[in-house]
């Protein structure tokens, strides 16, 4: 699916790295320091060095975005934890409190710091597509800084996705999980999605994927109160959501 760097490898002016020349293809995705085009011979990319990570990291990030999109999912700015064998993902803009929310689920291992791939089915290197049951699945991607260096981390792998919560600071004195309409849920998810394309058809496909996600996984707003334990609240809410969906 991904073509090798068949064109000349060269050093871009901005620093070390390499560039794959796009040959009249269409830009399909970009991700940090990488761009991926769909050309006549497959996908081709450009990556360059930025201050915080090497070019291959960005290029692989871009390809991860592209591939998850092609498989009907997306990559999200999300910090996440494992709770009762499933993943709870926290989304929101920088400074919203995603990492803080993770810390407030005491004892729950951290799954992702900043980037989380969500798909309607897990992808295995041995068997390309597994579909063990309904629901969506998550896989952490590299990136971001751990909120607490010694916070326990979950082993990377596919896990069922329990819920997605859009974090914001609490107006009330306690933490609240507030429902949201499906359209608002899709909007919140779209705003936390790594850009997948500049083509209307790519955005259309992404909207369809997010609509599917909202139909299968609870998405809500979390008003986070500093110091308030989230674990009991999350467990109660997840239980009520499971009963509602039954």
């Amino acid at each position: 699916m991904v073509s090798p760097p068949t064109t000349d490898r060269r050093v871009p002016q901005s620093g070390l790295g390499w560039e794959w020349t796009a040959r009249g293809g269409e830009l399909v995705t970009h991700f940090a320091g990488a761009r991926v085009w769909q050309g006549p011979g497959g996908f081709e990319g450009t990556a360059w060095l930025v201050d915080d990570a090497p070019a291959p990291h960005h290029l692989l990030g871009g390809l991860a975005v592209l591939l998850t999109h092609r498989l009907g999912g997306g990559v999200f700015h999300a910090a996440s934890v494992e709770l009762d064998d499933a993943v709870v993902a926290f989304i929101g803009p920088s400074g919203a409190g995603k990492s803080t929310a993770c810390r407030h689920v005491e004892g729950a291992p951290l799954v992702s710091v900043d980037r989380l791939a969500l798909l309607p089915m897990p992808v295995s290197p041995l068997r390309p597509l597994l579909r063990p049951g309904p629901g969506w699945f998550s896989h952490p991607l590299p990136g971001g800084t751990r909120p607490v260096p010694d916070m326990p981390g979950a082993l990377p792998g596919w896990r069922p996705l329990a819920a997605v919560l859009r974090v914001q600071k609490a107006a009330a004195a306690t933490a609240i999980i507030a429902p949201t309409s499906p359209a608002s849920a899709v909007t919140m998810l779209r705003e936390s999605t790594f850009q997948t394309g500049l083509r209307p058809s790519a955005e259309q496909e992404l909207l369809a994927a997010l609509d599917q996600l909202v139909q299968h996984v609870p998405v809500a707003r979390l008003e986070l109160q500093l110091g308030a334990s989230l674990k009991p609240l999350l467990r109660r809410w997840l239980k009520s959501q499971a009963e509602e969906r039954r």
């Binding site: 909007t187 850009q195 955005e203």
Partner: peptide, 21 residues
């Protein structure tokens, strides 16, 4: 790009990267 979800149109203006409901 647009999708009607729960009776509301979610519209993305691609060049502005904005989402409207």
């Amino acid at each position: 790009a647009c999708r009607v979800i729960g009776g509301k149109a979610v519209v993305i203006t691609i060049d502005h990267n904005q989402v409207h409901v």
